[in-house]
């Protein structure tokens, strides 16, 4: 069981979270050509090591988080809110 330190709720079981996907993807503009969308949606790296990914604390605060996780060891290196504005506000509130 991976334990994820949610910045809002504290450390929780991963079963409280929903997995999103690759956190490094910059989604193309809605009117971008299909080729760009194909790349963003289908052409994914299968990283062996530290990977940036999105998770949602579905059964908690429902915040989307950006998490750096080692795919070999499940070690979590960093967690922050995926929304930059929220992340910044959280940082300032500390």
């Amino acid at each position: 069981m991976i334990r994820i330190p949610c910045p809002f709720c504290g450390e929780r079981d991963h079963s409280e979270f929903g997995y999103g996907g690759d956190g490094t993807i910059v989604y193309p503009a809605l009117d971008a050509p299909a080729e760009e969308w194909v790349e963003a949606i289908f052409e994914r790296e299968n990283i062996c090591g530290v990977q940036s990914e999105t998770w949602q604390h579905v059964n908690g605060c429902r915040m989307w988080l950006l998490i750096e996780r080692n795919t070999m060891t499940h070690e979590i290196q960093s967690v922050r809110p995926a929304h930059e504005g929220v992340a910044k506000a959280l940082e300032e509130s500390k």
Binding site: G18, G20, Y27, T54, Q56, V58, R62, M63, W64, L66, P81, A82, H83, E84, G85, V86
Partner: peptide, 13 residues
């Protein structure tokens, strides 16, 4: 619901 939250929090912030 999850989809709308994902869009608002990760894509269209």
């Amino acid at each position: 619901m999850v989809w709308l939250e994902e869009l608002l929090q990760t894509r269209w912030t």
